[in-house]
Nucleic acid binder design. Structure first.
Length: 433
DNA sequence: TCTGGGGTCCTAGGACCC
DNA sequence: TCTGGGGTCCTAGGACCC
């Protein structure tokens, strides 16, 4: 049996852990540059006039009218809270697959428990006690069914207290008949529409389709989902995280930029970020893509967008080499006279450092002996991000930097931003802890 | 004025090989 | 009128996920 443990409204819940004054009140978290709503707790979801992924400027009034508290995204905090949750889950089974920042599969094979329900509740309670974060637990024989069980655990939380187990044929059929086709993990908007067009509206109806139809119309990916829903496990359990195949970063600027120099500084900074990830997984990249574009949404601005991909002379993880290459690439695609909104870099063709092949003139570098890069990473790890950086990132005011007007403190990672505890005379009205 | 950012996997088709 | 048969590798695009 496999459990899917998923945090409820993860980003919003992380904010609420440190703000007990907001418990029971609507909270939303905004995307980078405070652009859209990307997370909402159940109180905020209940206010139907606050749709997710809606641009904030369009709904600012509804937010304030309904006393919704909003936060800029604080990924430092969410990332660290996520690790805490995952650490707790690892005490329940050695087999944990971290699927995303707020959810993980937990394999129950070989574990001792009196009942699946009890074990599920125990996980939920322990995570809550250790981190302050509420989770839902779905338990089933396959991943797709566990996902579905998790959905049910949240939908009927008032009955099952956030734990749902699908361990009999009867429960499986009941769950499948309840689930709408677009509730199924792996069936997105396009396929759901197609299935509805041929009269398939529930997960159960989907499992009754002939396998051939599914393979023809939804490829082998669809067949796997079909099998998993029928109780046959065929999606692998991945305990070890696989090295990434692509590493990208692209963020909208805090304001529109025309100046190549400033855009180049942003680009150099992004290269530093992606190369740090690259070195952390002991890999090198073969290709570097750089792209640049104006604001698609603007009717007023002239539009321009261009991308370029460079094959490196030899796969590398060297920040300085890649910044140099990115600089050349950017000079090629940049055209003056436009108001740019975003620059992005993407590394691909990622291979382990020891697989880098030399050529006739150069032996492959020994990356594990590169003292400059090792020292660079060591300093930034010890003293914090960007303590040392390439001069090409620049020291001027970073006009491209993201807007985060309402970011909460980084309670768990910065000494200066620790939660302050106040003793109040009137204990009935305690604020904070 | 203001509209997110980061991934995975699969398939078809083109270019190439012998 | 008639034009082989078997491969590999790469890329773009589609679909999906959080």
């Amino acid at each position: 049996m496999i459990a899917l443990v998923d945090c409820n409204s993860f980003y919003a819940s992380c904010e609420q852990v440190f703000r007990p004054d907001l418990w029971g009140t609507p909270v939303v978290v905004l995307s980078n540059n405070d652009g859209c709503v990307i997370a909402a707790n159940k109180e905020a979801k209940a206010l139907s006039e606050i749709p997710m992924f809606e641009p904030v400027f369009k709904i600012k009034k509804q937010l304030t009218d309904n006393n919704v508290t909003f936060f800029s995204s604080n990924y430092t905090l969410y990332g660290e809270m996520s690790q805490r949750v995952m650490n707790v889950l690892k005490t329940f089974s050695p087999q944990v697959e971290i699927y995303s920042i707020d959810e993980a599969f937990v394999d129950f094979a070989g574990m001792k428990y009196s009942s699946l329900e009890d074990y599920g509740h125990c996980i939920r309670k322990t995570v809550y006690r250790s981190t302050g974060l509420p989770v839902g637990v779905g338990v089933a024989p396959t991943k797709v069914l566990a996902k579905l069980a998790n959905k049910i655990s949240k939908k009927f939380a008032h009955i099952n207290n956030n734990v749902c187990v699908i361990d009999t044929e009867e429960k499986r059929i009941k769950a499948l008949k309840w689930a709408k086709i677009n509730d199924v993990w792996g069936i997105g908007g396009k396929h759901a529409k197609r299935l509805q067009n041929i009269g398939v509206f529930t997960a159960y109806e989907f499992t009754q389709l002939p396998e051939e139809w599914v393979r023809k119309n939804m490829t082998v990916v669809g067949v796997r989902i079909w099998n998993e829903l029928r109780g046959t496990s065929c999606i692998e359990f991945k305990t070890l995280p696989k090295p990434r195949k692509g590493i990208a970063t692209a963020k909208s600027f805090g304001k529109k930029l025309e100046d190549l120099g400033m855009i180049m500084e942003a680009c150099s900074y992004y290269i530093s970020e992606v190369t740090e990830i690259l070195r952390a997984q002991k890999s090198c990249a073969t290709y570097l893509q750089v792209f640049l574009h104006t604001n698609y949404f603007s009717d007023r601005d002239k539009q321009y967008s261009k991308s370029i991909t460079i094959t490196l002379a030899m796969p590398t993880c060297d920040t300085f080499v890649l910044i140099y290459e990115a600089k050349k690439a950017l000079e090629l695609i940049y055209k003056p006279g436009y108001r740019y909104k975003k620059v992005g870099v993407c590394l691909s063709g990622i291979i382990p450092q020891e697989y880098v092949q030399g050529n006739l003139f150069h032996a492959p570098p020994k990356w594990n002996k590169n003292e400059l890069l090792k020292t660079f990473d060591a300093i930034n790890k010890k003293y914090g991000k960007s303590t040392v950086f390439s001069a090409l990132v620049g020291t001027r005011v970073k006009e491209w930097e993201l807007i985060k007007e309402d970011r909460s403190p980084r309670y768990t990672t910065q000494w200066k931003e620790l939660l302050k505890v106040k003793a109040k005379k009137n204990l009935q009205k305690t604020e904070g802890f």
